[in-house]
Design a protein around this nucleic acid. Structure first.
Lengths: 140, 140
DNA sequence: CAGGATCCGTTTCGATACTG
DNA sequence: CAGTATCGAAACGGATCCTG
């Protein structure tokens, strides 16, 4: 909401997401399987605490990266999903993937996915962004 | 040094750098102007505290992202520069730049640079990585 | 029962003073 | 100039408790 006073450097602008471990993992979870519930995030293997999760979800919403909406079935469940702005983070996550793949032992299935993406990175990024954007509308 | 026990997810692997505000800024500074001294980092507009800077430089060195070396002129000065592994972070920083440019008001000069890069991203990344790698050897 | 607020001991941050 | 030491403030994170 209140745009923090910050330098005009691109990196500096985006520190809320990239300068925070948990925000990064939330974005990753959403890019992999939208939409997610509060409980879905808690299930992730990195074990985020409930209060930390709540503050990060709020921050990401205020920054226009994600939105909340009701679950069609039960009011109790809340669905979180990326906005277009959030979806546009995909190319960055993909590049992080390439880098990690080069220097660390990563999961074999993830490795295979990255290899496929590399063949046609531009196309993959473009079509995935389109797909995710379409899915937003569906759940409106 | 001691590879932390961590999930094999690419994002999870690289949390030391991307999950920490200061590490990210250090990498940015180095990509913009190698090599840097301790004092150079302190001069950056984000005002990092000396103890924080020290811990981050140590961590980045342990992770093989940067190296320390003596200044040719005076022993008192220490030069920090990226390794090849660190230089390979460039594509990620570039993507962050594109994203920030799309959604935030960024510095005009930076905006112009990004526009140029966009025209030939692949080439820019490739030649810049080559240039930086050559410069490492020079200062050995 | 899912989402999330509250409490509280522990860790980390970060500003400044200080040392080699 | 390149770092350590100190110390109050802030953030973490785990358990538990509320609320619809």
């Amino acid at each position: 909401m209140d745009q923090k006073k910050r330098s005009n450097c691109p990196v500096s602008c985006s520190l809320d997401i990239w300068g925070d471990k948990w925000s990064l993992l939330i974005v990753r979870d959403l890019l992999e399987s939208q939409p997610c519930t509060y409980g879905d995030f808690l299930k992730a293997e990195e074990k985020i605490a409930t209060n930390i999760l709540a503050t990060r979800l709020q921050m990401l919403e205020e920054n226009g990266i994600i939105t909340k909406s009701e679950h069609p079935d039960s009011k109790a469940k809340v669905l979180y999903q990326l906005t277009s702005k959030g979806i546009d983070l995909l190319p960055i996550i993909v590049e992080i993937g390439f880098w990690a793949d080069k220097y660390y032992e990563i999961d074999k299935s993830k490795k295979a996915v990255l290899k496929e993406i590399k063949k046609g990175k531009e196309l993959f990024v473009k079509t995935t962004i389109q797909r995710l954007n379409k899915e937003i509308v569906k759940n409106k």
